[in-house]
Design a protein around this nucleic acid. Structure first.
Lengths: 148, 148
DNA sequence: CAGAAGATTGCATGAACATGTATCTTGTTG
DNA sequence: CAACAAGATACATGTTCATGCAATCTTCTG
């Protein structure tokens, strides 16, 4: 049986998005709770650390970090402030543009990220499996894992 | 070229979920801003009105509503309080279990929902199209629209 | 079986916190 | 200097967690 191309309708988009929202809520809740409980960090903190750990020299401009983690600019100012307080990052002024600020990950930040990373992957996969077992979400999870 | 079945790995799950998050952030931001600007309601309010409008007799127990909109119980208490203040719902005591409370949608609530519904569908589809045009997200959007 | 003790359920409320919008400060550039 | 860019901050809003309270259910006892 082949897939028949079908123009997406506003209605089918809404039904699809509704399932995405359900999936998103479930998975993010699992991740939030487990990361907080086992590693003492929130989801935004974790994702910021991930971005920084993977960035060249472990540093990113504030606005770049905002784009990567999907938050607004002001939220990232405070997010980085929390990471600084925790000792996971420090702020560094951009030498050639004194308006600019780099958030730079510390060794301690990398260690916490490394410690949390395994948990994150495990919980994510488990949450996706659990969601995939719900009839309503089975096809959504399958579609995402296959081609998404 | 056929699709080769592949067990999902923790790593592929993470890459997939990262794209879902990006998509989610973009789409929800569009919806939030447009609904707020054109109809003066937030996303949670809109979704609660939708659940209530589609429920039998236009009413739901608080906890049922919480499950449907993907929020915690206390969040829904406050959400319904906002809807009440706006005149979109009212609270009704459950006759056979005096602990229980129904949130009931009003005519005004149905009207606001009807007015916002078109906007919601339009913005959603437009946002999905826009996201689908981003190389990183093309396959994700396609997968969701096809089978998800 | 009546009745009370304890557990559970359904929701409300207060405090802490994260986020978005608007605005302000500072630095850059034409 | 005017216009703009990068961040920081003030304020309002929304969310969660912990807790409180009342109604209901369960279980045990006499």
């Amino acid at each position: 049986m082949t897939t028949i191309p079908q123009a997406p309708t506003a209605s089918s988009d809404q039904a699809m998005w509704s399932r995405v929202l359900t999936l998103h809520a479930h998975v993010e809740r699992q991740l939030t709770q487990t990361l907080q409980r086992k590693h003492g960090i929130g989801l935004s903190e974790y994702r910021a650390l991930e971005c920084l750990a993977q960035a060249a020299d472990g540093e990113l401009r504030m606005q770049d970090l905002a784009d990567k983690v999907g938050l607004g600019q002001s939220s990232v100012t405070r997010l980085v402030a929390r990471l600084n307080t925790a000792g996971f990052t420090f702020r560094d002024l951009c030498p050639d543009d004194k308006r600019g600020v780099y958030a730079v990950i510390t060794d301690e930040g990398r260690q916490r990220y490394a410690a949390a990373r395994g948990t994150y992957g495990d919980v994510l996969s488990a949450a996706l499996n659990a969601a995939g077992a719900v009839p309503e979400l089975t096809r959504t999870v399958q579609a995402l894992r296959s081609g998404g």
